[in-house]
Design a protein around this nucleic acid. Structure first.
Length: 283
DNA sequence: ACTGTTACCTGATTGC
DNA sequence: TGCAATCAGGTAACAG
């Protein structure tokens, strides 16, 4: 479930292997992902030198020499698999669900693997990155100083929807998904059911640092638990993390005073997604 | 304009 | 053991 911290970690891994390198070969094996791959994708990538990377929300942007950028979204099940030179998996034959394969001038093979095909890849002129349809309406980066309690408050003003749903809305803040919204609300002591318009003020003052700290800790965990951001199996950027509430239905929450008396973490359904929270600590 | 629901997709898990 | 039903959720399309 790649959310901002996982995407950030994947991006750093790509950076370590691709920045400054030339793509000597690019092959697209299937084009019908969440959005159709541009037909000229492989042709544009082949021979191009990679100049830099950046992340915007859950999107990765890979800039190429010559003014084009590759826009990558991992969707639900997307991952990058790195294989070093000399491995027998350098064969042209793709592994299952490997939709795009790049080979660098240093011999690394980078596979974009996405069984559920909710992810996608697009091309955009570097100068127009921010105007790409998928990026144009994204809200602020939660780790950027512009994401202040005041800014969040004005985005939530008048919204009748639950705060859980509002934080999943990428137009309000970019990069949060189901897991980190649950975790940040727990940290801020705010009920996921609370109407968004009641959050501005003191609660937003708690929520903004809660979101930031949750994301920063997850990025740090990913970076430190992954040597060079690459796991032994070659997979980039995924790591287990000790969630406080997500996936812990029935367990006592760690913050309840006298934990044994905690009623336990509840699981409810909001907008067809699971929400985990502690009803005593989150109001 | 805003809010809530459903579809897309397939591997893993659960139930009988 | 096997097969079907259910679940997972990021995003867009849709309904009201």
């Amino acid at each position: 479930m790649p959310e901002l911290p996982e995407v950030e970690t994947v991006m750093r891994g790509l950076q370590s292997r691709l920045e400054g390198r030339r793509i000597v070969c690019a092959v697209a094996h299937r084009a019908d992902l969440r959005w159709m791959l541009p037909p000229e994708l492989a042709e544009r990538l082949t021979g191009a030198r990679v100049t830099s990377f950046r992340r915007r929300g859950k999107y990765i942007l890979m800039r190429l020499e010559g003014g084009q950028s590759v826009l990558l979204h991992l969707g639900m099940s997307g991952r990058i698999v790195l294989t070093p030179r000399g491995s027998n998996s350098q064969a042209i034959v793709p592994t299952p669900h490997e939709h795009l394969v790049l080979t660098t001038d240093e011999g690394w093979r980078l596979g974009f693997v996405d069984p559920r095909r909710f992810g996608s890849v697009d091309l955009v002129p570097t100068a127009q990155e921010e105007h790409h349809k998928l990026l144009a309406e994204l809200g602020p980066e939660p780790l950027d100083p512009v994401f202040t309690p005041q800014r969040l408050s004005s985005a939530l003003a008048g919204k009748r929807t639950p705060i859980k749903a509002a934080l999943l809305d990428q137009k309000i803040v970019a990069g949060l998904g189901n897991i980190y919204v649950c975790e940040a609300l727990f940290r801020a002591g705010i009920s996921p059911k609370r109407a968004a318009y009641t959050v501005p003020g003191a609660r937003a003052e708690r929520l903004v640092p809660a979101i930031r700290d949750t994301l920063r800790e997850a990025i740090a965990a990913g970076g430190s638990s992954l040597r060079d951001y690459v796991q032994p199996d070659g997979e980039l950027g995924y790591f287990q993390h000790a969630w406080k509430v997500y996936g812990r239905e029935g367990e006592p929450c760690e913050r309840c005073p006298g934990r044994p008396t905690c009623a336990g973490i509840r699981r409810i359904t909001q907008s067809a997604r699971s929400t985990f929270y502690c009803a005593r600590m989150q109001r």
